[in-house]
Write a protein that binds this DNA or RNA. Structure first.
Lengths: 174, 174
DNA sequence: TCTCAATGATTGACTAATCAACTATTGGTC
DNA sequence: GACCAATAGTTGATTAGTCAATCATTGAGA
């Protein structure tokens, strides 16, 4: 018997709207998935974001990708991409090289050591993903993917029409 | 035409499994929702987590709640609950009082100022939630909630059976 | 060719998250 | 009543996230 989100966070008053309830459920579920997966990769001494970078670089050619191109492909926005990659470089999991044709760009690529680390995580990752989302039937997974696609679409649309609510003048609180 | 997650992160190889794809889509979508909502509350000078605490305290009685009870109800796990509430107290949005019957506990409750701040956020929150998730039809929202419930259930189950993969001895990398 | 805005990336300063270690208090149990 | 594990919360040390400011390089125009 699945717990509804209202019970789970012991909420006393009902949600103002279904949208609000969905937003909360979405963030709470994602946090759980994030932590489950994060627990796996941290056993290898890297964070989830670092793992994400390594995966991106494995999927790109041997030349690698320029720094900001990696940032764009991240699952979670990462303004601190430079230092994130600094840490990966310090662990010898990625290598950086300034591009010769456009010296502004820095190409990053995954090292053999980095590829080995990813390999060692293949099986535990498969396992945790299966236990978290593998219980859903094929049809539910498809529904979920479709709904999430639509949601991201809506957010993108909202962000481009109203030039985002972020970064307005701060109130007195800080 | 909604973008599939594979296109969005410009992934070159297909996902290993539907579960993996769903996990990525879930985290990416949640990050977007999180940032959209976060942008709204930050205009009031508080973070999303701080907003969450205020909402929890508004929903509890005038006596408030003990510190760790708040932590349990958070949407996202928050080990730094003490300092999170420190900041809210510094802004005079919550008040703390040590419990007289069990002096280990510290009850936190929202101040009038805190309630006022929440009120001022009601309308912008409603608006951002509506633009992000309000485009989904009633039926899709119900499906989403159901699927997310099942997913959280599965993660809880997995965490209690295998005593979580977290906190194992670190590898050589750091 | 000289300027100058645009692009790509990095750094600084600050804030927040994380985990382990610690203190204070309580409720048993001998 | 003394001991002792369990509970509630805090603190220290470290790491990571955030935003603005900065630097180097490029490409387009005057």
């Amino acid at each position: 018997m699945p717990l509804r989100i209202t019970d789970e966070i012991k909420q006393t008053r009902p949600f103002a709207s279904k949208s609000a309830e969905a937003a909360v459920a979405l963030m709470r579920t994602a946090d759980l998935v994030r932590r489950a997966i994060g627990g796996v990769v941290e056993n290898a001494g890297i964070t989830l974001q670092q793992y994400n970078v390594l995966r991106i670089l494995r999927g790109s050619g041997p030349k690698g990708l320029p720094t900001l191109e990696i940032a764009e492909r991240m699952i979670e926005q990462a303004p601190g991409i430079t230092r994130l990659i600094d840490r990966l470089e310090a662990k010898h999991l990625v290598a950086r090289e300034r591009c010769s044709t456009d010296r502004r760009q820095v190409f990053c690529c995954i090292t053999t050591e980095g590829l080995g680390l990813l390999d060692s995580l293949n099986e535990p990752m498969r396992s945790v993903e299966a236990s978290a989302l593998g219980t859903l039937c094929e049809e539910h997974v498809s529904q979920l993917l479709g709904i999430l696609d639509t949601t991201r679409e809506a957010i993108h649309a909202a962000m481009t029409t109203s030039p985002q609510a972020n970064h307005q003048p701060r109130s007195s609180h800080r």
